[in-house]
C-alpha cells in the first residue's frame, strides 16, 4: 500500500516540531532553515499551514531535470533527488508549480521531501495530528467520516 503525507491545517498550532524533525532526520541538526516542510503562519486569520511536496505522479521536477537526477522510489512513490547526479541547475525549482523543491547553496544541489524512506519524521513529530501519513487512496477518509457523522449519526429523539 502506498501512503501519502496528509495535512490538516485546522490542527496545526505552528510549533515547528515538524521542521526540526525534518532537518534532524536529514542533516542531524535542528534547523528549520534546512527543513523540507514549511509551516506558514497567516496572522490576519490565525491559520497555520504546513506545506511540503505532494509527490506528484507526473512530477514536473522529474520531467524537467536535464540529467535525470530525480527518480521514483518504487516503494513509497517519493520523488528522490540523487545528489551525486544533480548539477544544481535549478530548472526543477522553476518547473515545480508548488515551490516544494528548492536549491541549497551550501551543497550546490536541490532538496525536496523524500518521505524519509516511508517513515516521515514530520508526521511522527507532529503533536496534533495536523500531519499524518496515511493510505494514499484514502486521504479523505477522516473527513468523510466526520461529515458522515454529522449527516447520519445523530441520536434519535
Amino acid at each position: 500500500m502506498q501512503k501519502s503525507l496528509h495535512i490538516n491545517p485546522d490542527k496545526c498550532t505552528g510549533c515547528l516540531q515538524c521542521e526540526m524533525a525534518c532537518s534532524f532526520e536529514n542533516y542531524a541538526v535542528f534547523a528549520p532553515a534546512r527543513s523540507r516542510i514549511k509551516v506558514f503562519d497567516f496572522h490576519a486569520t490565525g491559520r497555520k499551514v504546513p506545506y511540503t511536496c505532494t509527490q506528484c505522479d507526473e512530477a514536473w521536477c522529474l520531467h524537467a531535470c536535464p540529467v535525470d537526477a530525480i527518480t521514483v522510489d518504487k516503494l513509497t512513490g517519493a520523488k528522490l533527488v540523487n545528489e551525486s547526479t544533480c548539477v544544481g541547475c535549478k530548472v526543477c525549482t522553476i518547473s515545480c508549480p508548488f515551490g516544494t523543491i528548492n536549491y541549497v547553496q551550501e551543497t550546490g544541489k536541490v532538496q525536496k521531501c523524500d518521505l524519509c524512506g516511508g517513515d516521515p519524521a514530520c508526521a511522527t513529530a507532529c503533536p496534533t495530528g495536523a500531519i499524518t501519513y496515511v493510505d494514499a487512496n484514502w486521504t479523505g477518509l477522516n473527513k468523510m467520516q466526520a461529515w458522515a457523522d454529522k449527516l447520519g449519526n445523530q441520536p434519535t429523539a
Binding site: T13, C15, L16, M20, T45, G46, K48
Partner: peptide, 17 residues
Amino acid sequence: LVTNQACFGCTIACGRV
C-alpha cells in the same frame, strides 16, 4: 476565540488567537 497557537517547539499550545 479563533484558535490556539504554539510558540516554537511547544506541544502544549496555550496561546490565544
